[in-house]
Nucleic acid binder design. Structure first.
Lengths: 369, 369
DNA sequence: GTGAAAGCGCTAACAC
DNA sequence: GTGTTAGCGCTTTCAC
């Protein structure tokens, strides 16, 4: 019917004088095969240059050795790190990983719908995206294991951090350095015109910021909170607003490192010294943070991918996941961008040394449910 | 035998009172189906909640609708941008994309070998990785379309840039600003202990740098060339060496933006003003470059992924690709990090305005073969 | 136009 | 232990 593209299991069977069943067993390292037989088969495989067909195996088995990872804004540093973490373990377990990058709700829904089709994926990792009850139900109906990373999915395994606590951590760090007037730069809930993917991290971090302020008896000045679409350019503009205030903040907490970079940039533009005149704290600890000497709340990005993937593998293996909620630890990494109010800069080797010993405050890490 | 997981084409056929062949035609939008019949079938599909099985279709067709992209160091900004570009077009064409991140030669060989197995991928995009003649032959033997991005693959379609010309571009830019003592920070050919993936970009950019220097009648001082393992930390150290020289360079060209960031960082540590005392030019124009005001040689990263993917799709569609070599354009983006020798800084709005009008020098863009 | 039937290459029962 | 066989769900001739 079609041109055959290579030797099949039948050819191997014929060549080695055994049945296809035996060849299959050898391929899959199943037991109940005599050593001699195995060798014969292996020789035939080698000689014929036989390569098993994933497709046929998967169809026959009823389930592909493929998992999908649905991840928004792939090019953001935090997303890639998560992806890389997941890929490394999926790889190790022999899964093919198809990556679905989503940049809009439409794209998200498209991918999600496609993934519940038959034989599409043996499991799915969903990153940062809140799913509707209906979407979750589709996966359940299709019996496709689903785990979430960086987003809470009730009833399903999810690996997350406590964003509120993170916001508190950052704010308390700043307050411990003597800052009393602390600005916040974060994401704004977008308009209907640009419907978003439902990220809540920034909001939660803001909540933590406010909580910490309140707990310390500090007023939370609405003027000090600036929100806008995610991205360094916006963050830069927002920070510029903050710095232009009659009484500007002495510190700014940005909801992400990317945004913190915008803040740094704004300060540089305005000739404001970091950390002399302004302390900045970010969130995530992406790779650029270290390079820029950015103080930040570190979350284990790569690990989140690793954990999510490992849990998915466990489920696909048939294991039960308990507890469903896995909380990853957060900690402050104190670098050059934050210092005590009115800090006088030190240059050269001294500062370098200082940077080598970041102050660290731990939090979380305890799984709970 | 196995628990059936949902309605099949046969169920749809039965429900709509037609044969499976007809259903198949409907699913694939094939012709020769009466409109009425089509509607009936569509109704049955809807009613049964039928989802076609990719696996079965692929097996039957002899070729999956899956392509693989093999890409080293996924977490590097340049790699992600390429990946994102490729994903967007593959997605649009309805392909699943499995991503193979490679961090070592062993991993590379592992993935490459796996991909030549039967029914594994309908096509492969290989990014930045030089392939051995043998590896290429394997793909050819397996009749798996292969295209390269950011690496030249003789006899196969490849989308690349002219790294030598890029190196020249950067160097000439610096020279045009009056710089005569220009340092270079790039990748060193790693030792056997840490066998690398064979990237040659840094070397070629260095060659361009030397060529430009020579063409301008400037001596190329070996002390001004510093090489080390890729990464900002190393670059920072190398730049520090350069800055510590008895007669330090007035400008540094880094083989990548990531390394340029290390250079910037080193300058900041040493209290050296950018661009007052030191001009810096990078390569790639990753997203962070704009934010940092880093002058750089821009290469179309995302586009390279787009182009590679489009060419792969074309081949899978049966088209011929001519010419094989596709050269993407390069251009200098002049930002704050480079200026004339002895430049006096301007602050505030003035500088902001200046940054809005980067000088641009074009090069390449013409396909050739 | 449409139906029937033969694969695609493999896994998994089941018999021996 | 090993061979045989019946699917897995679809595409694609080939008759009608």
């Amino acid at each position: 019917m079609r041109a055959r593209s290579g030797p099949t299991i039948a050819d191997v069977a014929a060549a080695s004088g055994v049945g296809v069943g035996t060849v299959s067993r050898v391929i899959n390292n199943a037991e109940h095969v005599r050593a001699g037989t195995r060798l014969k088969v292996l020789a035939a495989i080698e000689q014929l240059g036989y390569r098993p067909s994933h497709l046929a195996a998967a169809l026959s088995r009823g389930r592909p050795r493929t998992v999908a990872i649905v991840i928004p804004h792939l090019t953001r540093p935090s997303a890639v790190e998560r992806l890389a973490g997941a890929l490394s373990v999926l790889d190790k377990h022999g899964y093919d990983t198809v990556v679905c990058n989503v940049g809009s709700p439409a794209q998200r829904d498209h991918h999600l719908a496609a993934l519940t089709a038959r034989h599409r994926a043996a499991g799915v990792i969903i990153v940062s995206l809140p799913l509707s009850r209906h979407q979750v139900a589709e996966f359940r109906a299709a019996a496709i294991p689903l785990v979430a990373v960086d987003v809470s999915l009730p009833g399903l395994p999810h690996t997350i951090i406590d964003d509120v606590a993170g916001g508190e951590l950052a704010t308390r760090h700043l307050m411990s350095l003597g800052h009393r007037r602390i600005g916040f730069v974060g994401d704004k809930f977008p308009s209907k015109k640009a419907p978003a993917l439902g990220f809540r991290s920034s909001d939660r971090r803001l909540a933590g910021y406010q909580r910490a302020l309140t707990a310390a008896g500090l007023p939370s000045d609405a003027h000090l909170v600036r929100l806008g679409p995610h991205g360094p350019a916006t963050a830069e503009a927002l920070a510029a607003q903050l710095l232009g205030l009659p009484v500007p903040p002495s510190a700014i907490f940005a909801a992400s490192d990317t945004q913190a970079m915008g803040v740094l940039s704004a300060a540089e533009r305005s000739g404001i010294a970091i950390p002399g005149q302004l302390s900045v704290v970010g969130f995530d600890d992406i790779q650029a943070a270290e390079l820029l000497g950015l103080s930040t709340v570190r979350q284990p990005l790569e690990d989140s991918g690793v954990m999510g993937a490992e849990r998915l593998c466990a489920i696909m293996r048939g294991d039960e996941i308990r507890p469903l909620r896995q909380l990853l630890p957060l900690r402050i990494v104190h670098r050059r961008s934050s210092a005590t109010v009115g800090h006088r800069p030190v240059t050269g080797a001294t500062e370098q040394a200082g940077q080598q010993t970041p102050t660290i405050a731990e939090l979380g890490g305890m799984p709970c449910d």
